[in-house]
Design a protein around this nucleic acid. Sequence first.
RNA 1: GCUGCUGUAGCUCAGUCGGUAGAGCGCGUCCUUGGUAAGGACGAGGUCAUGGGUUCAAAUCCCAUCAGCAGCUCCA
Length: 640
Amino acid sequence: MVRVTLPDGSKLEIANGTTAKQLAEKIGPGLARAAIAAKINGQLADLSTPITADATIQIITLTEAEGLEILRHSCAHIMAEAVCSIWPAAKLVYGPTVEDGFYYDIDLDEPISPSDFERIEKKMYEIAKADKPFIRKERSRSEALTKLASDRYKTDNINRTDSDVISFYSHGDGFEDLCRGPHLPSTGKVVAFKIMSVAGAYWHGDPTQKMLQRVYGTAWPTKKELDAYLQRLEEAKKRDHRVLGKQLDLFSFNEAGPGFAFIHPKGMIVWNAIVEFWRGVHNKYGYEEIKTPIILNEQLWHKSGHWDNYKENMYFTRFDDTAYAIKPMNCPGGCLVYKTRQHSYREFPMRVAELGLVHRHEASGVMHGLFRVRQFTQDDAHIFCTPEQIKPEIIGVIELAFEIYRAFGFEDFHIELSTKPAKHIGSDEIWDISTSALKDALKHKEIEHKINEGDGAFYGPKIDFHIRDCLKRSWQLGTIQLDFSMPQRFELVYTDKDNTEKTPVMIHRAILGSFERFIGILIEHYGGNLPLWLSPEQVVVLPISEKSNDYAKIVEKKLRDAQLRVGCDLSDEKIDAKIAKAHSRKPPYMLVVGPKESQSGTVNVRIRGDKKTKTVEVDKFIAMANRKIAEKKVGLTLED
RNA sequence: GCUGCUGUAGCUCAGUCGGUAGAGCGCGUCCUUGGUAAGGACGAGGUCAUGGGUUCAAAUCCCAUCAGCAGCUCCA
């Protein structure tokens, strides 16, 4: 007999060798039906695993995250069998679970296309319906290597594990795959899945290796959950900033300039609203602003180190027999401004901001709407200071960043620290000093952070700010980068207290990162429903009929005089059509006006996302709207 | 950059077996003046991404280029 402890703390005596499945049956028939795996002493295992010693055991069902993962992993195996049965030449490489699904990397020369998904799924349903048991078979390492000697991928997988026992899983019909497991008891538990996409993926993520075909799928405990997931994807698609940017007429792209965004009038309203706010906050934090040229002599970029470290991403041009580069970063320009006169320690810290337009030639396959472009405006700044000022300055930047993020409604952000990369300039000592300065500042603010070893910029370590949008996707925004090298390369100096010339420390930092990307993130975060202060069209006046057009024009003028961004629909459509048309532009407020309103000097307010309307005096509405704008309120509810 | 897919009206998309192109929305004109999510009629709008090739004939088949999409690798 062995003693098992269940999650609720209760203990049970069972015969030695009882399987987890039998244990589940003992606990209850409901649990036995729902059981798909077990966690024995914290280790996931198949339901068929015999219990041979005292243990803490949890029966895993599909309601647990681990259960869902097992389901998806088993589904990946079923897909693998289906693919192998359709293309016998297919060689399986690696098939893990990912968030919301799974994929399997397959080496097959014939391309798998979306039109093949249906027959793969059909085959998968056959396998699932047959309800074949997943059977684990263990072999010794040498036995396994012998068995799979002809399979370079599986041999590689075995060589990458350190376990002496190598397990295989089969589910009948001779299909067997090397796998750590655990798996579902049988294929019949898989009822709701879908092949989502296929894309290339390098073996081991190494571009010098063969490109494999990665088939993505998703699997859920029930059809209903699968449908809900697909529905969620549809909703997410509607929030895509590339779709909304077109629909709301904010920006566009053109073949004439791949990766270069065209910002439309409405997009510029959002842009300028952000800039205005940004300037205000930076002024408060003691920044001054400069603007430096976009095109600068190539020699400058040799001096800065960009030529050696960033050339592949730079645009170059040539005229009057002179080579020029189009700036990918603002720092060299900033250094030249610094050098135009002498500086004293008394001026420090000098916080010099620049909304700098930079060009970076990104690889063609990485462009993605406004999120990844080849030309963008950085909200850059360079802080020149003494070594003692590093820590307080970094703390200041962190506070500034948080203040700005919160104003845009982002509360969920996290920070990552990146250290010295293989390709770098500057001595190890300098890197150590600057890395610990960043760590100290984070420690002081008690900010949790992830560390990315070797991920820093070539000139110094950095802190990155990442935010999550409402779909929980993470995007990098700001960055703080310490730089001891650039000031030396540019021979920047200041006169210290002791009347000697010293090299200042330079801190590069951006808060929003790129205006283009940030606007894209805002659009997705709000699903196009921008807060009042950012909305291109804040209010739209809709007369009931032509008879109320004059009153509508009066209201429109009043709102415009009060600095509100207002539109007015004087077309000969019915009010329903006017509302529907305005709706697609997502204005925060629609003001319906007819004879009633014109008599009482009121407007009937229809708030975005709310069908209930409320009649208020025009002046009251204006005061309310302007108050919300001033306070950057996200909510639109009319309060008195 | 790599792999796969896609490119037809301003937008979203149809277009069968190769026989010179269609819808809805939008746009214009007219009718309609309607109280909270799309009233009606008529009309304009296309070098079917670009360049080659096959064919009596190409939006359709083939090749190349460009761009976009998904992912990988990058980048931050």
